[in-house]
């Protein structure tokens, strides 16, 4: 079963209290952030802190990603030099716009890995799409390397890049969302939705997550631990859905043994896509079949 990424919790890289507690909230994935959450004159401080935390704090079974600064900034290279040798589960690269810069990033990562005798296939890369140009190139970006195993959308920056004001309903970035999902699905990798900023609006978060799930996002970035349970609830199949999926798989196995590929349950046709969806449902519910 693949790693689930229903929730990816942002943790500011210069905040010891939050870094030491990151693993306890039950998020599927953690994003230790060296980029937007860190002041420009504290970049060294955050980098050194994250390095020390990665070396000594247990994040239990949670996937740990580090968001580095862009290579166009004076901080990006140093972030990679410090973090890549520690081999977190993933590096998240912000504002990915072209395949060319993605190639540059991977070349740098792999040369650091070579220097430290590390394999090239352990740590993955999450490409963040935060500009109109990035959205236009997203399919190529998703396809470029096996190391890229998730595409994520940065809604705040994209909205700004597109000069959209008053965008609370998200309609302005709706096409981008769908293009990103499409590019990810076409390459069989994860698509992660942007954060929901109003932490006190639980209902708004639920609605937006339901929408993200409906259009195909694998999960959602999270800025406050309180948002985790709501997103998990949305992504967790209901008991009725689980029962039905279980029944489909059982019938499928029985029919397969008898050499029958397509059959019906309660008068509804069951074929390969329905079976695949049932498997996905049981995977999400962490049920073996």
């Amino acid at each position: 079963m693949k790693t689930k990424r229903r929730t990816m919790l942002y943790i500011p890289g210069n905040n010891p209290a939050m870094l030491q507690q990151g693993g306890i909230y039950g998020a599927d994935s953690l994003l230790l952030d060296l980029e937007d959450a860190v002041a420009l004159n504290e970049k060294d401080s955050a980098r050194i802190l994250v390095k020390n935390m990665l070396n000594s704090i247990s994040y239990y079974n949670t996937e740990v990603c580090v968001r580095v600064n862009h290579l166009d900034t004076p901080f990006g290279i140093e972030d990679l030099e410090t973090i890549v040798p520690l081999q977190p589960d993933a590096i998240r690269f912000p504002k990915t716009e072209t395949v060319k810069e993605l190639k540059k990033l991977i070349d740098i990562i792999e040369s650091i890995e070579n220097k430290h005798n590390l394999p090239h296939n352990k740590m993955t890369i999450h490409a963040m799409i935060e500009t109109a140009l990035g959205v236009q190139n997203v399919f190529e970006i998703a396809k470029f390397s096996k190391r890229v195993d998730a595409i994520t959308i940065g809604g705040q920056d994209l909205t700004a890049d597109m000069n959209i004001v008053n965008a609370k309903d998200g309609s302005g970035i709706d096409l981008a969302r769908k293009m990103i999902v499409m590019a990810a699905k076409a390459n069989n990798i994860d698509a992660i939705d942007t954060v929901f900023v109003d932490v006190n609006d639980e209902e708004g978060l639920r609605l937006e997550t339901e929408y993200a799930k409906k259009i195909g996002f694998t999960g959602k970035a999270v800025i406050n631990p309180r948002q985790i349970d709501i997103i998990h609830e949305v992504y967790t199949p209901t008991e009725a859905e689980i029962r039905r999926a279980f029944r489909i798989i059982k019938e499928f196995k029985k029919n397969k043994d008898a050499g029958i590929g397509v059959f019906a349950i309660d008068g509804k046709m069951v074929d390969a896509p329905v079976v695949a969806r049932a498997r996905h449902t049981l995977d999400l519910a962490e049920i073996k079949y």
């Binding site: 909230y25 406050n224 309180r226």
Partner: peptide, 11 residues
């Protein structure tokens, strides 16, 4: 409480 830690424990 709004403390994420206390809420997590309570949950």
């Amino acid at each position: 409480t709004k403390s994420p830690m206390d809420l997590r424990i309570a949950k």
